[in-house]
Amino acid sequence: MPEKTAVSASGAPQNDNPYSQGVLADGLLFVSGFGPVDPETGEEVEGDVREQTHRVMENLAAVVEEAGGSLDDVVKATVYVTDMDDYGAVNEAYAEHVGETPPARVCIEASRLPDDVRVEIDAVAKVE
């Protein structure tokens, strides 16, 4: 059975829920879903869904970087939106963070996300 290690980054929102920000196992980092929450205030960031998506990607990056990687190491992402009409705006902001070889990805419209945010993203990264 592979050893697993919890990864926690101060640059990503903290919570008291029973899950880790990320879990590293056999060189794969599984990053929990993050919404557009400012890690310093614990509050949802103001602005449109593009700005919120940038914050989500910054939260994901903080956890991946804590494990020794970067967003370029993400191999799979799942994007959750509460309104598929936001898809284009979310995609534009997301694209600014993933580099020349974007990860495989799924986008799902969810009826509701925690704290009623509009976008949440989780990821899997290959880190050494």
Rank of each mutant, 00 (worst) to 15 (best):
I108E: 15
M1Y: 10
G88Y: 11
R112Y: 08
L29K: 10
P39G: 02
A9Q: 09
E92M: 10
V74K: 04
V37W: 01
Y80R: 12
S70C: 04
P36S: 08
D73T: 01
V124M: 12
R55G: 00
P114W: 09
N59E: 06
G47S: 05
V124W: 00
A61T: 01
F34V: 10
V37P: 01
T101E: 14
L28R: 14
V127P: 05
V63E: 06
V63L: 10
P103S: 02
A6I: 14
V81H: 09
P114R: 02
D38C: 03
D73Y: 01
R118W: 02
G27A: 03
P2V: 14
Q21H: 10
G69Y: 10
R105V: 09
A67N: 01
Y80E: 10
E92P: 02
T78K: 15
D116I: 03
C107K: 06
V74R: 03
E120H: 01
R118C: 00
D86Y: 15
E92T: 14
V64W: 06
D72G: 10
R112S: 15
A9I: 05
D38A: 01
H97F: 15
L113M: 08
Q21K: 05
A123K: 10
K4C: 09
V79I: 15
P13N: 05
G33I: 00
A12V: 12
Y80N: 08
L60R: 09
C107N: 07
P102M: 11
P2G: 11
K76E: 14
G22H: 06
V75K: 06
A61M: 00
T78A: 13
Q52S: 02
N91W: 14
F34M: 09
E46T: 08
A25T: 14
V63A: 09
L113F: 13
F30M: 07
D116K: 07
L60M: 09
V31H: 04
T41S: 15
R105G: 07
E44C: 04
Y19N: 08
V79P: 04
T78H: 13
E66N: 03
D38V: 04
I121A: 04
